[in-house]
């Protein structure tokens, strides 16, 4: 398949970076055997740079690889990131998991990625009905931080306003306690405790997750209620104010639990409570590392 201008530019940047020795590894996307799916590729030699590619099928958040020891050992790394994924890089820097000096950010302008299930069915057009909800609320079509920027050739995503992203959140909010409970009990009931959500998340970088802790075993490991609910609750709590909304957890979940309805809701709540959005500024202090004397107090007697 022919290279697009985007690909050429991307490949050139990557090649230069590897040739000059500024990075030892580049994490990027490459075209898969299925043209509608892109898969991650790890490049260490300049001549392999031509494998790199980018399109509206570059769905995965590659920042997840930055938490892996096998990747970390390369030291200086370059990474291809969309605006949403780039926020994960920022959050990792904020949380000391990554040093700005060790990462070259190749920012990809992006006007939305096509939902995998639609792409699999042959959808090739970016539109408000074909992209993920996160793309509809995206404020970072151009990444907030980058060392190199690759412009997009994709037309701008036009929003009619008829498609409401994460519309379920408002509906859920309006439900009674029992109804909410019924909804989530049913969802969490499905959870098989595979932890794919955690594996897929760039910010679940703990070397030993809380569920793996025994003595005490705060979270039941059996995959039935209430252990499931508890896991989902704590996972969501740990990501509150940190989640950058890449949606990888939900995409990874084999039983389709709508995890983004929780993540996005908490992102909104944290913003409303503390005016903080995750991953926008590498110099900002994470929201749960600081406090304000005038923080919301109304719920306390």
């Amino acid at each position: 398949m022919a290279n697009t201008k985007t690909d050429e530019k991307l490949q050139k940047i990557a090649k230069d970076l590897l040739e000059s020795g500024e990075v030892n590894l580049i994490i990027g996307y490459t075209k898969g055997s299925n043209p509608q799916r892109m898969r991650p590729v790890f490049i260490t030699k300049p001549e392999e740079a031509e494998k790199l590619s980018f399109s509206h099928n570059a769905v995965q958040d590659l920042a997840v690889f930055l938490k892996k020891q096998e990747v970390k050992k390369f030291g200086k790394i370059g990474i291809t990131v969309k605006g949403c994924d780039e926020k994960a890089v920022n959050a990792l820097i904020q949380e000391y998991q990554l040093s700005r000096d060790n990462i070259k950010i190749i920012g990809m302008q992006c006007n939305g990625v096509i939902k995998q299930n639609l792409a699999d069915k042959g959808e090739t057009k970016v539109s408000e009905t074909t992209v993920y909800d996160k793309c509809l609320i995206c404020q970072e079509h151009t990444p907030v931080l980058y060392d190199f920027l690759v412009e997009t050739e994709e037309p701008e995503l036009s929003l009619s306003g008829n498609v409401k992203p994460y519309a379920e959140i408002e509906k859920l909010d309006a439900l009674s306690t029992e109804e909410k409970n019924a909804y989530w009990a049913k969802e969490f009931d499905k959870c098989i405790k595979c932890y794919a959500c955690r594996q897929a998340c760039p910010l679940c970088f703990c070397s030993r997750c809380i569920v793996e802790k025994n003595m005490p075993q705060w979270i039941d490991t059996n995959s039935e209620e209430p252990g499931n609910a508890q896991w989902n609750l704590i996972r969501a709590y740990h990501l509150s104010g940190r989640c950058i909304g890449c949606g990888e957890c939900e995409r990874a979940c084999p039983v389709n639990i709508p995890l983004m309805l929780i993540n996005e809701k908490m992102a909104r709540d944290v913003y409303n409570l503390f005016g903080y959005k995750s991953g926008l500024d590498i110099n900002a202090k994470p929201v749960f590392g600081v406090f304000s004397e005038s923080d919301f107090n109304d719920f306390i007697k």
Partner: peptide, 12 residues
């Protein structure tokens, strides 16, 4: 053995 050096502890 399990600390990942996120330093949230230090922040608080």
């Amino acid at each position: 053995a399990t600390c990942v050096a996120c330093f949230y502890c230090q922040r608080v």
